[in-house]
Design a protein around this nucleic acid. Structure first.
Length: 935
RNA sequence: GCCCGAGUGGCGGAAUUGGUAUACGCGCACGACUUAAAAUCGUGUCUCGUAAGGGAUGUGGGUUCGACCCCCACCUCGGGCACCA
């Protein structure tokens, strides 16, 4: 028999498939459709990466299975070819970026074909093709017309040494990626896309799609929806009002100052009233010049300046409070101004401590007992009681006075109700004396800290709301009175160290103490019950927020962290933004008939030293006529980011050659009735590409140009392939693996099997060249097996196993558990090798389930067995229900949770019969005799 | 700091509505075939113990007849966000 010659076989079938066009998708044929999508690659000079193979193979397996299940399958491919690396290479080598792109895509295409992916190459697209980017520009213009594209003064990254604007990805840790020098900010007018107008829908519509949960979570966090209140603070002796945004309106009675972002426009309006304008101006300038790394440094001490001469009025309690500017308040979020509540916000607390600003606690923690004897009883009203909780320290050994109940496991501190006419200190002293006998206490502090507990009082049979105020004492001496018998019979007095307290208490007022004992920085940032809050005292935070906002004329609003998309790049290798600027008419869109706006040929691709794109110096290209008034006008010289072309490419695949539309409605409706059926890609694209493309798609949906409001029905993600040793593969370390080498030495099928077997698909895994041989051996075994199959039927056990395997492979592919799928195929191959005979029909079924994983070898064997049609056009085998039920089952017998024996039973045995069988088993009896009945 | 995810042999990993832990593969050891090597095939391979048996799924607790799986606390690693009020 011939050896398994992967080179010959793979070349042969790749040729046959290309000629017979078996992977080409015809639009409009009847039946079910399936659109499987992978992220189209950026054709870098480095060539195909093993990571590309991993995700492409996964979707290749899925689409091949769908094809065999009778779907009309679209599995397209293209090139996301605009971008920096190509441009930088072009600058360095002085070659046209378009030529670099052509060379790279040719290499990529050849490599992809050599791995045997079932792409429909007739639909290949390229974002740098004018026939493609004409429509990228067209979509931009539609956005412009709807007011979603606008120009806005904002900052760009600027390397003062290289005199060049940098993309965000060229700024690494605040430093220029090219020269290593610090990056500063430079202001420039930039094109922006108003993605924030879609923030709400981008968040809400995640409910409609089948994305991995972690992808949804990450997107939601990025969008950062948060509900809060907008509240106006009037300014004394001024008509101006400061509008703040807060999610914690319930804490407003604790707002002791107001902070504006240094860039806040109101600051200038107060100029004449401010008595320390010099300081203020100086601070604003400092902040502006500060590089981002410094401004966001983790351990940075909060800075700021008070606006002296003006005061804000707290609308809740009419108190006059100071106004500050500080860079810990962001101009770009909320209203750019906050009310500061140092008692309930970490940042405000830190700032207040630095500048000695007042701190007032207005929300107290709350604990509701939900389990055990003290669990609150439904339906009973709560009786409120003011209580004290005495924290008594013995300075001699630094231990704290605790109480332990005798009749049940309960550990706490000395507590008790405040009687008529008593103050907290008196009440606390009295309780200590009554419960423990200690009489000589030195008051350390009657704290402003309190806790509210809600529980069922077992003795008094009522639901109780107890508000414990903490009073701290030191013992002067250990002199004790005799404790009344009624008290001492209930509990013991115990002394515990601070460390022991952490685990000792069983009651909330005790557990809470460890938070603030010896911690002068204690603040309560969670919700709770209002205190010192006028008519709102006693309310829960949630209820109070709404009521307070309403009563002071505030508004409940929703804010997002998501910012509008900076769409301008001062670069050459991108789509020109199709806008003309005319002094008379302003910004005028390029008429649709003049699209695409082509890139001019230039001598140098280097960005200019004034922050403009290299296009700006091509006066022949820049100077043009205004489409409106026909007067002199200039072209926009900014180009689009490379996120633009990838924001709609999946639509173009449906109808890639269309000259009249980006894609016909008919084609879109045929392939994307429910959107892309399955989109697999990397987690690194979760927040940018995925969000951007969802935004563009929704926009086109609003124009009624696409059939669905969401582009992707299902989104999954693959893990990265790391180098051996678990570090990132990188050219500079020299630990990259070229898939080409593996294809040559082991074959594409082996590479595919190996990458699918390497580990769980969604997790990062380390490459191991040593382990590839296992996948090759697996295919070798199959090759050898193919020469000894016969017409005799396979043994029954083997048939059962085959049908179980068919079932499992189907399920595993759907769940992307490719590693376990291959494992179970290996198991059955091992069994077939051992079997006395392997039936041809059975073997063919096995080949069919393997075909999506290893398309070449299976096609070769399939055809050598006399099949005329491609295995990839055959029907996915059906497993037989009757054949997956075992005749006999071996089960373990556990005694006290340990497996002690194994018995074999037949599948239709009754439970009683099994029991008696078990009780007859010798091993079981041995263990049974030894059992003393106690376990 | 916050949000996700993961910790199982020498290595990649399998097993989760709680029911035989370590499937499959790599590596390693021994054996067969061979003049020899490669390839291939077979046997073994968590750990302590001669054995009977005991122990082990990051650590410590808990729930359960029974826990890799559920609960609580903690540690380590990976990813994302990071002054978002």
């Amino acid at each position: 028999m011939k050896n398994y010659d992967h080179k010959k076989i793979e070349k042969k079938w790749q040729g046959v498939w290309e000629k017979s066009k078996i992977y080409e998708a015809k639009t409009g044929t009847k039946g079910k459709t399936f659109y499987g999508l992978i992220e189209f690659p950026y054709p870098s000079g480095a060539g195909l990466h093993v990571g590309h193979i991993r995700s492409n193979t996964a979707m290749d397996i899925i689409t091949r299975k769908r094809r065999m299940e009778g779907y009309n399958v679209l599995y397209p491919i293209g090139w996301d070819a605009f971008g920096l690396p190509t441009e930088n290479y072009a600058i360095k080598m002085g070659i046209e970026p378009a030529k670099v792109t052509k060379t790279n895509t040719d290499i990529f295409r050849k490599q992809l074909k050599s791995v045997g992916f079932g792409f429909d190459w007739s639909r290949e697209i390229n974002t740098t093709d004018p026939k493609y980017f004409k429509w990228t520009q067209w979509i931009f213009l539609q956005m412009y017309k709807k007011g979603l594209a606008y120009k806005h003064r904002t900052t760009i990254n600027w390397c003062p040494k290289d005199m060049i604007g940098l993309a965000n990805e060229e700024v690494v840790g605040g430093m220029c990626d090219r020269c290593g020098g610090p990056v500063i900010k430079k202001e420039k007018e930039q094109w922006m896309l108003a993605i924030t107008k879609y923030a709400d829908r981008l968040d809400k519509d995640l409910d409609q799609v089948n994305y991995l949960e972690k992808i949804k979570i990450q997107q939601r966090n990025w969008i950062g929806k948060s509900e809060g209140s907008e509240i106006e603070f009037t300014v004394k002796d001024s008509p101006e009002k400061i509008k703040i945004f807060t999610t914690r309106a319930d804490t407003i009675f604790g707002a002791t100052y107001v902070v504006l972002a240094p860039e806040h426009p109101l600051v200038n309006n107060f100029k004449l009233l401010i008595t320390n304008w010099g300081d203020v101006e100086k601070y604003i300038k400092e902040v502006k010049d500060k590089p981002d790394i410094e401004r966001t440094a983790e351990d940075k001490i909060k800075t700021g300046v008070e606006l002296k001469g003006i005061k804000a009025i707290n609308p809740a309690n009419k108190e006059e409070i100071s106004i500050w500017i500080a860079d810990y308040v962001l101009a770009t979020y909320g209203t750019g101004a906050v009310m500061a509540v140092p008692a309930h916000d970490e940042r405000d607390f830190e700032f207040a401590k630095n500048f000695n600003l007042p701190i007032r606690r207005v929300v107290e923690p709350k604990t509701v007992y939900k389990e055990g004897d003290s669990a609150v009883r439904e339906g009973l009203p709560f009786i409120r009681r003011d209580c004290v909780c005495a924290v008594v320290r013995n300075p001699k050994d630094n231990k704290y006075l605790c109480i332990s109940w005798k009749d049940h496991e309960m550990h706490g501190l000395v507590t008790g109700g405040i009687e008529e006419g008593e103050d907290v200190v008196l009440a606390a002293k009295r309780e200590v004396l009554e419960e423990t006998g200690y009489k000589n206490l030195k008051l350390i502090k009657a704290t402003d800290i309190a806790i509210n507990t809600f529980f069922y009082h077992r003795v008094k049979k009522v639901n109780r709301h107890a508000r414990f105020q903490y009073v701290m004492f030191d013992l002067i001496d250990e002199e004790q009175d005799i404790v009344d018998n009624a008290e001492s019979s209930i509990h013991n007095v115990v002394w515990k160290t601070k460390e022991e307290l952490k685990t000792y208490f069983s009651v909330a007022e005790g557990q809470f103490v460890v938070n603030f004992i010896d911690n002068s920085n204690f603040i309560h940032t969670d919700e709770g019950i209002l205190h010192n809050s006028g008519g709102f005292t006693g309310l829960d935070s949630g209820e109070a927020r709404v009521k307070i906002t309403k009563s002071i004329g505030g508004k409940i609003v929703t804010k997002y962290k998501l910012r509008d998309w900076v769409f301008s790049r001062q670069r050459y290798w991108g789509e020109p933004i199709p806008i003309i600027h005319c002094d008379k008419c302003g910004y005028v869109p390029v008429p649709e008939k003049d699209l695409p706006v082509m890139l001019p040929k230039v001598k140098s691709y280097t960005p200019t030293d004034n922050g403009e794109s290299p296009l700006a110096i091509i006066s022949k290209w820049v100077n043009t006529k205004c489409p409106k008034c026909k007067g002199k006008a200039k072209r926009e010289t900014d180009t689009m980011p490379n996120w633009a072309g990838s924001s709609w490419y999946f639509l173009r695949y449906a109808d890639p050659k269309n000259n009249k539309e980006f894609a016909s409605k008919k084609a879109l409706k045929y392939w994307m009735k429910d959107g892309v059926d399955w989109y697999n890609g990397g987690m690194e694209h979760t927040t940018l590409h995925l969000l951007y493309s969802r935004f563009w798609h929704k926009f086109l949906y609003d124009l009624k140009l696409v059939p669905t409001s969401e582009p992707y029905m299902k989104r999954t993600s693959h893990g990265m392939i790391l180098a051996e040793g678990g570090v990132k593969m990188s050219k500079s370390i020299g630990n990259t693996i070229d898939p080409k080498d593996i294809v040559i030495s082991y074959g594409a099928d082996t590479l595919r099997i190996y990458e699918m077997f390497i580990g769980p698909f969604d997790q990062s895994v380390a490459w191991s060249t040593e382990s590839i041989i296992g996948s090759r051996r697996f295919l070798d075994k199959i090759w050898r097996l193919s020469s000894r199959i016969e017409k005799n039927s396979s043994p029954k056990e083997l048939q059962n196993m085959l049908h179980k395997t068919i079932k499992k492979i189907g399920e595993d592919i759907e769940g992307m558990s490719f590693n376990t799928a291959i494992s179970s195929m290996m198991i059955i191959v091992n069994e077939m090798e051992k079997a006395t005979s392997v039936n041809e029909k059975d073997f063919k079924m096995f080949l069919q389930i393997l075909a999506p994983f290893a398309p070449h070898i299976t096609e070769e064997i399939w055809s050598s067995l006399g099949e005329k049609k491609s295995i990839h056009k055959s029907l996915w085998p059906k497993w037989d229900k009757r054949k997956i039920v075992d005749e006999t089952i071996t089960i373990g017998v556990q005694i006290n949770g340990k497996v002690r024996a194994e018995i074999t039973i037949s599948k239709d045995m009754e439970e009683d019969d099994i029991k008696s069988l078990v009780l007859k088993d010798k091993k079981v009896l041995d263990w049974w005799d030894g059992w003393d009945g106690k376990d």
